[in-house]
Amino acid sequence: MRRRVVAAAVAALLLAGCQGAEEPGTDTPTPTGASTSTEPAQPSTEEPSTDETSGDETSSDPPTGDQTDDDDDDDDDTSEDDPSGTSEPTADLPAWVDATETDEQEAGEQQDEGQEITGVRVGLHDDYDRVVLDLSGDDAVLGWVAFYEDEAVADGSGEPIEVAGSAVLQVSVRGIDWTTESDVRYDGTTVTGEGLEVVTEVVFGTLFEGQQQVFLGVEEQTPYRVFTLDDPARIVVDVQHP
């Protein structure tokens, strides 16, 4: 009888223990590091960066292109133009001489053109004084002969012509139609050599038999050169500084 009671008690205890134990596999563990939220992600409301140190605005590169060109142009604009207007091309100029010089054209060919001396300009340059005889037309067709002499003498009459300076460089311009009057012909007014170094003045002599005398008074006989230029037409006389 006692054995049955003990057996029944043991059976009751074993049954109670089985009911208090958890059943395996009924709970799902949460993975470590993963979000358990099921709500959709919300868009960010943060404003874009306005940091002035980002992008092209912070470039420290020096100005390029037109900016540097403008600076160069400004420098050019400060250059001073020749006030006398006697700056001429200097390439392929003839050699300096101190003897008689004559151009290669024939006076008979030039007279048919009807070209005239219309004005006189003088200018100071680095190593020489310049005298420009402006001509009518685009192409210089008048001839010339140049030489030094002790004093100026008028063609035809032989009368002396007063010219300031210790010597005279005579340039006789050939081929002018001296038998007719011209409205554009220079009136012969003397041009002073104020501001020049060696040329004292430019004096017009007579127009005789197609030749116009032009006297350059000089302080000293130095080498010179004479040449013609076109567009517009002109005769250029350069006299070297002593």
Rank of each mutant, 00 (worst) to 15 (best):
A164Q: 08
L169N: 10
S60P: 01
V199K: 05
E23G: 05
D98E: 14
V203I: 02
Q19C: 00
P24Y: 05
D74I: 05
T179A: 03
G114Y: 14
Y224Q: 04
L124A: 13
P94A: 14
V120N: 10
E116F: 11
D82F: 09
E52H: 02
V202F: 02
D103Y: 12
T102F: 13
G205I: 04
T228L: 13
V132M: 07
D72K: 14
D56V: 06
E113M: 15
S37T: 09
G210Q: 07
S84E: 09
E23P: 05
L124W: 12
D139A: 15
T30W: 03
P223S: 12
D103L: 12
E57L: 04
L135N: 10
E101A: 14
R185A: 01
D51K: 00
E80C: 10
Y148R: 00
T26Q: 11
T102W: 11
Y224F: 13
A152C: 04
E201M: 00
L207K: 02
E47I: 07
G20R: 13
G143A: 06
P89G: 11
T45S: 05
Y224M: 06
T78E: 14
I176F: 03
G119M: 10
G175E: 01
Y128K: 10
D187F: 04
M1S: 14
E106C: 13
L229A: 11
V203H: 06
T118S: 14
Q110G: 15
D82A: 09
A41V: 10
P223E: 13
P40H: 00
F147G: 09
S172A: 13
V131M: 08
A107Y: 13
T206L: 11
G156N: 07
G195W: 02
L142I: 06
S166A: 08
L14Q: 03
P63K: 04
P232S: 14
V5T: 00
D112T: 15
T30A: 04
V198H: 06
V237A: 14
R4N: 09
D77C: 08
E46P: 03
D76N: 12
G33F: 01
Q19F: 01
S172R: 10
D77K: 07
A34F: 00
S84L: 09
V173I: 11
P89V: 09
L216A: 02
D134E: 11
D187R: 08
T58V: 07
D98S: 14
T30Y: 04
P31S: 02
G175L: 07
E80Q: 06
E194L: 02
S87T: 09
E39I: 03
G205L: 05
T78I: 03
V120Q: 07
A233E: 13
Y186A: 07
P43R: 00
T53A: 01
A154I: 10
T50F: 01
V153D: 09
G205D: 05
P62F: 12
G17W: 00
D77A: 11
F227R: 04
F208R: 12
E113F: 15
V145Y: 04
E209Y: 14
G33H: 03
T26G: 05
V122P: 13
D103R: 12
V131T: 06
T50I: 02
E109M: 13
T118L: 10
Q105W: 14
V171A: 10
V6F: 06
A91Q: 13
R225K: 11
T190A: 08
D139I: 15
L124S: 14
R225I: 11
Q170G: 03
V132S: 05
G210C: 07
E220G: 09
A233M: 15
D127Q: 13
V132W: 03
